[in-house]
Design a protein around this nucleic acid. Sequence first.
DNA 1: GGAATGATGTACT
DNA 2: GTACATCATTCCG
Length: 197
Amino acid sequence: MPSRRWLSSDAETLAPALIGCLLVHERPGERLVGRIVETEAYLSEGDPASHSARGPTARNASMFLAGGAAYVYRIYGLHHCFNVVSGRAGRGEAVLVRAVEPLEGLAAMAQRRGEVPPRRLCAGPANLVVAFEIGPRHDGCALDVGELRLERGPRSRLPAPIARGSRIGLTKGRELPLRFGLAGSPWLSRPFRPTGK
DNA sequence: GGAATGATGTACT
DNA sequence: GTACATCATTCCG
């Protein structure tokens, strides 16, 4: 049984640690793989932007599971976003996966995403969810077993340093530098400004 | 019951 | 930079 201990670290630690890890969606006849290049941490305390900020509800219940579960929610009535729950059970922290570099299954991803340039296939949390055919059915799933999995990347060094900046699209908690990404990667949803914003 | 809100993406000025 | 599609969830009364 693969160790899940690395997934129980706090969100601010896990978010950069997920850069370089692989997201795998494997079903009969189809295998989708991507390398995570951009994440955001949502904390259990002191983070007004976190869905867990006002305690458990029906929607955010899976965010309070133990690290290694998936948290999938709908936003703006239109899209879904995929998170890796982190920390110990009951904490309520998670890491939003904002962009991955597609490695396998590009044709299937393109079919779902439509006519977009390759670099936009999995750029943005709602876009990668479409490309990877992730849905509400994955909410609460364990990410070390089953069709949707998280795999540790190669132990070799990353091809670039990890950049850090403020999170995107928030109305609260903008000042917290909790966005992480592979510096200079063409697969990011948006580039990191040199200033860290 | 009713209203406000939102961890987005795309198109447009 | 702004407009907006679109609706479940959340909060208030």
